[in-house]
Design a protein around this nucleic acid. Sequence first.
DNA 1: GTTACTGGTATCCTTTAGTATACTGGTATC
DNA 2: GATACCAGTATACTAAAGGATACCAGTAAC
Lengths: 119, 119
Amino acid sequence: MPTENIVHSPAACKQSIAAVRDTLYVLSGKWKLPIIVALSTGPTRFKDLQRTLEEITPKILSKELKELELNEFVTRTVYATSPVSVEYELTKYSQSLQKIIGEMRDWGLQHRKRMMSKK
Amino acid sequence: MPTENIVHSPAACKQSIAAVRDTLYVLSGKWKLPIIVALSTGPTRFKDLQRTLEEITPKILSKELKELELNEFVTRTVYATSPVSVEYELTKYSQSLQKIIGEMRDWGLQHRKRMMSKK
DNA sequence: GTTACTGGTATCCTTTAGTATACTGGTATC
DNA sequence: GATACCAGTATACTAAAGGATACCAGTAAC
């Protein structure tokens, strides 16, 4: 669980803001976390990822995968089949994001229920 | 703690993706979470928020605060001092985001250390 | 009476995100 | 021999996010 939720001093507050901003910077955009969730079922090919994510275009998927590779969340492996097949797979380091993702999924489910019951 | 990290079936995977995307949609952008962290020290005035966040322009801060109000994370109170003062305050519902924020802060701190030790 | 603070708004601009559509080369399928 | 699949890339475009700068009215301090 997170170390502390309540920020006590202005300095601690600024440090928390900086840390959250660092995380947001790495995970920026609409697709990085959904891609990581999609890959959590195991190694997945480009076209299959596109199908799972439904609305993503190949250009964006390609761009996001490259950024995820740079940040060491994902590895890309080319197999010498014919035609070649390419698999994307989560790294060990990506596991460190699982708590964030779990909390975000739970919050999203809860939020949807809340919205439904309101309207 | 999050309910389950590993996605077992394709259907559960799609549901997780949708839930994470819902959360990302509500928290979209560079500033919403940092603003919530900044407000966690208690009711804060517009100008003080701007000072805490340092690089944010009043236009963006104003826009983000309106969106946070719409999503019921923040309330805006005007006091009839002269000149008027305005305070922004976290709602009870915003507490539901604390786990996400805590995890993101912890991850950000960890990530920064990791980057430092690499280079 | 000039300067500074507050809580913003207005205008203009740049950057990034995202969409749409078409295309490629090699292979396998019908 | 036409069609379809794979893993993208190329090009052109639109929309959204965000930043820079200036400004406002009311008040208080000097």
